[in-house]
Amino acid sequence: MTAITRMWDKIGFNQKLAPYVFVSPFFILFLIFGLYPIGYSFFMSLFDMRLVGNRGFVGLANYTRLFTVDEFFGTAVINTVILLFTGSLLQHVFAIPMAIIVNSPRVIGRHTFKALFFAPFITSTVATVIIFGMVFDHNFGLLNWIIENVLGMEGIRWTARSGPIKATISILLNWRFIGFNMVIYLAGLQGIPRELYEAAAIDGAGTVQQHRMITLPLLIPIIFFGVSLSLIGGFQLFDEPFVLLGGYDTVGGPGQGGLTIAYYLMILGFKNGRLGRGAAIAWVLFFIILIVTTVNRLITNRLQKK
């Protein structure tokens, strides 16, 4: 008993050792649960791996074919990048001001607004799809009704054509995750000492100026988190286009309008049974995300040092 207590004290009071102990659960769990699937996927990507059975080593063929014979991969990359900007990153432009507004004690009913804005994140997919079906239906939908009757323009074929499909997915993504990002920023705002604003107000800074000079710089760690999450989530976008475009019945809708990298990965793996090719996409995607998040990290570091 005493030996354990003594050891406990030894670790407990050791400032050098403590952080390793604190992060160790992650590595223990990663070794047990994370490493095998990742290693397995690397293995698969080098073989002609089918859903059932392995047809042998193919070297890098699963990778090279993506950039040579494959008719879909290029489109998937372009779609994903477009949706990344219009769907995932755009949200932060809305989420930060919204967080600041509902965080202000002067706004009456801010707790209610907060909950209402967060609702899309927890609304069931079934209801979401039904509603979006109603809103975006090209004959009976609310949006086309407004476009035709209020704006006097021709209705848009929201889910039927390649371009509009991307607009639909972007709107759906913004709708679904703005509240989620707002909540992340709300938490970040709690860490900013109130005194800073009071001091700035005394110096004669207006509200907008205060937020530009205090809120944004101090929110950088959280912005980095939010944007990283959006970059990763945006490159791995799957659910929304998949549900909207009929899942495996099409290859990302007419003209591959909504085919994202992850959607294509799942088609190759689960629909076509080509696990090796799917795994190769997973690794290409991994390196793309790694590069983009690294750039994001470097930019953030520079901003933070200023």
Binding site: V23, G34, Y40, S41, Q236, A282, T293, R297
Partner: peptide
């Protein structure tokens, strides 16, 4: 390293998992 593990697409992991 921890950040990098987030970047790995989890889609096919379900099979080995």
């Amino acid at each position: 390293f921890i950040l990098s593990t987030m970047a790995f697409p989890p889609f096919l992991n379900i099979i080995p998992f």
